[in-house]
């Protein structure tokens, strides 16, 4: 769980940073898209690198989901009779939304791929015109809303995921506990904000 999560996390960070190129003007994002496809092309062919990334990502997503499903099933088996009376759980909000959060993010990714990768659901939908597609998207408030919900869900997911992963990998000793908590929260916030500036940038006309 922690390992596949870590791969996805690295992707998310890279992706967020890449998105920020939208602020550098229309050409930057498109060029970046081309760069990604040309990267290592002598070895892998045009777009080959991207496919490697896609395969790794797909594997990570599958592993991540399989692990999640297994945990959920074990949990159900470990408590065949549930409590008649059970108030809201006491622990952190992030921790108890992991499963639903994961599902929301997965659904979002499907939509998102159809939208910006395949262009099927995109109002512009021109391949290679990444910047234009993005701008076309986020002029509609409901698209922004959908992205916002997903990104916020991702933020929660990351906050607990990071915290838990650090624990599972045994990084957090008792002494570094507070630091781990802080780091997980900080990174989650940075990523959430980092993703959200693009749609809101478009919505408020900063990115054209």
């Amino acid at each position: 769980m922690a390992v596949s999560g870590a791969i996805l996390f690295l992707y998310v960070v890279a992706h967020m940073v890449g998105n920020l190129k939208a602020f550098a003007g229309a050409g930057a994002l498109d060029d970046y898209g081309v760069f990604l496809r040309e990267f290592l092309s002598p070895v892998l062919g045009y777009g080959g690198f991207l496919w490697v990334v896609r395969v790794v990502l797909l594997l990570a997503v599958v592993l991540h989901m399989v692990a999640a499903v297994q945990l959920a099933r074990r949990a159900r088996k470990a408590r065949p009779v549930s409590y008649a009376h059970r108030p809201k759980v006491q622990g952190s909000y992030a921790a108890r939304t992991m499963r639903w959060g994961g599902v929301i993010i997965a659904l979002f990714v499907v939509y998102h791929l159809l939208d910006l990768t395949a262009g099927v659901l995109n109002p512009n939908g021109v391949e290679g015109a990444i910047h234009a597609n993005v701008v076309a998207d986020f002029q509609r408030w409901y698209v922004v809303l959908a992205y916002t919900l997903a990104v916020v869900a991702l933020g929660f997911h990351l906050r607990h995921g990071l915290f838990s992963a650090l624990r599972s990998l045994g990084v957090a000793s008792a002494r570094r506990a507070a630091a781990v908590r802080g780091t997980a929260l900080g990174v989650a916030v940075v990523i959430t904000v980092g993703f959200l500036v693009v749609p809101f940038g478009v919505l408020f006309g900063i990115v054209r």
């Binding site: 074990r74 088996k77 470990a78 759980v89 921790a95 992991m98 607990h160 915290f163 838990s164 599972s168």
Partner: peptide, 10 residues
Amino acid sequence: GFGGCTQTGE
């Protein structure tokens, strides 16, 4: 037959 830990902190 216990469940697995996801560090929910409950």
